[in-house]
Design a protein around this nucleic acid. Structure first.
Lengths: 339, 339
DNA sequence: CTGAAAGCGCTAACAC
DNA sequence: GTGTTAGCGCTTTCAG
């Protein structure tokens, strides 16, 4: 009987601890002891058990094990689109924070489709202990599927206390950005917002407040919606410039859109930042590879991930949860060249 | 005896199906029926059970459920660095393919650290049914920790039949790239390889073969190693140009390094592709946001993900696994502007 | 339509 | 050192 599994038979049943015990001529707990490196076991028996286990291609059932030692926790991370660097950085940070607690992270990509948020919730519900991520569906809908599981939103304000949320506070950062632009002589500043509900975005509100504070011209025509993609930003800036040819600076909902804006500028023969200043939001590493490097109101994604995981931990253990005021990540202006 | 969760105390014990049954005054199986939407149950009883469950904040144990219905499968996806777009695209593709089979994907980021591959293997071993990902550790090491689990490598040639692998075949694509450069008049072509073992990389071998086929000058001085980052590419091109100022084109190990090369060129005042042509490898979406857009020998990451998942499926069910010759993704030249 | 019994695969107690 | 006895929480027979 060769070492590497039965392979040859047509039957497929995974060996259990029982099979190993029988094959090694010991009891099940002896097998368990050998496999889990317990102290109270004879060296020779242990080896015999290990050999038998290997011969049978035995692997313990994670379900049986999880059932009896109630320790492993895993959380679900729900992301709209893993190919979008905005979310990748957050995912990476959450992963890092989770590793620190020996948690497992099951990741779900909803493909930017709200319908999938619900199906994900349902399927995830029976696989993880808590959920953190981005959601667009109404809270009642999500709650229906979440079945009482702890849920932490990212970048979304919950209405009820049923959900926690990590809030991104970019008010001061956006104010900085606008102040910087104004001091550089810009008075015609537009914005490329996202183009989906809920509108207007917080970021737009911060923009409106900041421009108002400087007495800049302000009406809805200075803001246009953009798809969350480079092409989206490119097109949106086209529309904005059509409405306001006198534009000299633009603030965007996120860095991806900002990169689109820079590309539009280049195609249109505008120098950045001389003819058109561009400031994004998020502060992605990605921003440093475009030319000129993107200035941005950036957030600390590592802290964001850590906060989310910390809150989950509290929710899970029943410890005092962090209060909304503590669940905030503040953004700050990072000048890199484009604005 | 009672001993059940009083809920109001400081104790935290999750309600079980038993608690719900008692609270609703029915048996455990009736609860199970209500929760799983089975047919044979009275509407009123069902509602009563559901209410009780909600009141107790009951959620079924995934372990107990998994133990009895042996269906849910989850796989581990091991990635060196989720912030590196090279891996993000692959991860995203694997996720997509896994969703199609209702599999769960637990993702692990080894932070580019081979040590972590092993610890990840160990911790992952008891949490997933199979593993797919990038590894640098020797096979024997990995095998020691993988405990007989199916493992599929990405972009790595296994020595034994113990492991499967998805191979990236860029030979023809690199040949195309070099042919293109030569036909555009380039005869001094260098390469920025990666700088870690095993060296030389396949990509370097393909490069050597392709340049040799065109009778180009060829020795080790035309290839320099680079860190897998934009800065790495930037520095490496500096060294290459120092050795060969007459260089007019460069092929790189991957797109990230290529982007660094483009940046170096800009800083050095070289026009791309007029003074220096740059062709990367991978064909990332990312390449289209730099200026000029990056030409690259690209692979179909979706197909890569799908192949990996398909192979895992076969390994898991005992079906005939795909043969190495079928586990190949071929790369092809994608001209976009930089070369 | 509902309940009683049995067992999924494993480990934590306690025996010996 | 090793085996025996009990469950972990759930779903599946099979009776009623």
């Amino acid at each position: 009987m060769a070492a590497s599994g039965i392979g040859s038979g047509t039957e497929r049943r995974r060996a259990t601890i029982h099979d190993v015990a029988r094959s090694a001529g010991v009891s099940r707990q002896t097998v368990s002891r050998a496999l889990n490196d317990k102290a109270e076991i004879d060296g020779a028996t242990k080896q015999r058990v290990l050999d038998a286990a290997r011969a049978l291609d035995y692997r313990p059932s994670r379900f049986a094990r999880g059932l009896v030692r109630q320790d492993t926790t895993s959380i679900g991370l729900v992301i709209p689109d893993l190919r979008n660097p905005v979310f990748t950085e957050v995912a990476s940070s959450a992963l890092e924070a989770a590793r620190g607690r020996d948690w497992h992270v099951v990741i779900y990509d909803t493909q930017d489709n709200p319908e999938q948020e619900l199906s994900t919730m349902r399927v995830i519900g029976s696989q993880v202990d808590a959920i953190v991520g981005y959601f667009r569906q109404p809270e009642e809908e999500l709650d229906r599927y979440a079945a009482g599981m702890p849920v932490v939103f990212i970048d979304r304000e919950p209405h009820s206390t049923r959900f926690s949320a990590i809030r991104i506070d970019g008010e001061a950062g956006v104010r900085e950005a606008i102040a910087h632009l104004v001091s550089a002589g810009h008075h015609r500043i537009g914005m490329l917002d996202h183009n989906r509900r809920p509108e207007p975005s917080d970021r737009r509100r911060w923009f409106a407040a900041a421009t108002a504070a400087h007495g800049l011209e302000q009406d809805a025509s200075w803001v246009v919606g953009a798809d969350q993609s480079v092409e989206g930003g490119e097109r949106a800036l086209g529309r904005l410039r059509a409405a306001h040819p006198e534009l000299t600076a633009v603030f965007t909902f996120n860095d991806i859109i900002a990169i689109g804006a820079i590309r539009h500028a280049r195609v249109a023969g505008l120098r950045v930042p001389a003819d058109l200043a561009v400031i994004g939001f998020d502060g992605l590493e990605l921003g440093s590879i475009v030319e000129p490097p993107l200035s941005s109101v950036g957030i600390d994604t590592r802290r964001l991930g850590e906060l989310a995981i910390e809150q989950i931990a509290r929710l899970l253990t029943g410890a005092e949860p962090l209060r909304p005021a503590e669940l905030v990540v503040r953004a700050a202006l990072r000048l890199r060249g484009s604005g």
